[in-house]
Design a protein around this nucleic acid. Sequence first.
DNA 1: CTGGATCCAAATAGATACTG
DNA 2: CAGTATCTATTTGGATCCAG
Lengths: 134, 134
Amino acid sequence: MVSDSGEWPTLGGMVLNPYAKGCPTRRILDRIGDRWTVLVIGALGERTCRFSELARRIEGVSQKMLTQTLRELERDGLVTRRAYPEVPLRVEYSLTEAGDSLRGPLKALEQWSITHLGGIMEARAAYNDRAGDE
Amino acid sequence: MVSDSGEWPTLGGMVLNPYAKGCPTRRILDRIGDRWTVLVIGALGERTCRFSELARRIEGVSQKMLTQTLRELERDGLVTRRAYPEVPLRVEYSLTEAGDSLRGPLKALEQWSITHLGGIMEARAAYNDRAGDE
DNA sequence: CTGGATCCAAATAGATACTG
DNA sequence: CAGTATCTATTTGGATCCAG
C-alpha cells in the first residue's frame, strides 16, 4: 500500500489512506495511542467500574486525565457513562459493543510488548554500548 | 487482570503489570502509540526504504520527527539502518524480524479503525448534538 | 464522590539554518 | 541526500481549588 495508488478502503467516497495527511483513521489511531486509553479500555474490559475505582486501578493517572480520557471515549461511543443520583454521587463506566471490540487488537499489542520486552531492552543496552564506543 | 492479584507475566522476576506505574510494558506501549511509529512500520513493512522515500510516503512527517522515530526504532531493534557511503549519501531502512512481528498487531488496529470509523463519527455527531441541547 | 475550571511546568513538534 | 542543532509555538499534563 502506501502509494500503491488507489487501493484503499473508502467511507462514503472518502479514501481512508492512513499515510495521507488529513485521513480520519489517523486521528483514530492517535486517540488510541495516548497513554491512558489503552489502560482504561483494558480495565473496563473486565467489568463495569466507577470513577474512583478506575482511578485506583490505573496507577498514576490524574483525575484530570482520567476524566478527559473517559469523555473522549464516551464521545466516540466506546464507553457508556451512567450516573446514579445518589448521595454521594455514583457514576459507572462500561464498554459499549464497539469499545469491547477494541479489546482484542489491544490485547494483541500488549501481548506483543510482553513477548518482545526482553529483546527490546537488550537492543537498547547494545545500542547504548555502541554509542559509548565511538 | 489489573488487580486480580499476581497473575501477571514476569521477566526475570519482574512483574509485567501494565497498570502499575513503572512497568516497562507501559513504555513500550507509549512508544508504539506515538503518531509516526505505526506509519513507519507500515511503510517499511512493504519494502526497504531510504530516508527520503519514507519522508515522501508518510505525508506530513517532518524531517526531525522522521529521524527521531527511526532512531528510536533502531535503538529498540525494530529497524535496521544501513548507510552506503556514496555521493550523494544513501541510507536504507528496513524492519528487523522483531519489527516485522509488530506488523500483525498494528494491522489489526488499523483494520479496527477502518471498520469502526463510521460508527465513531456518528457517535461524535450525536454527542455534539446532545451537548447543543442542554 | 465526581468532576469542572484554572494556572503553570514540562514535554513535544514544526520551522529554519547549517553540515558531511 | 541525510541528517544535526537550535529556536519557538503548541500541546500536554499535573496540581489546586471549587461545586453539584
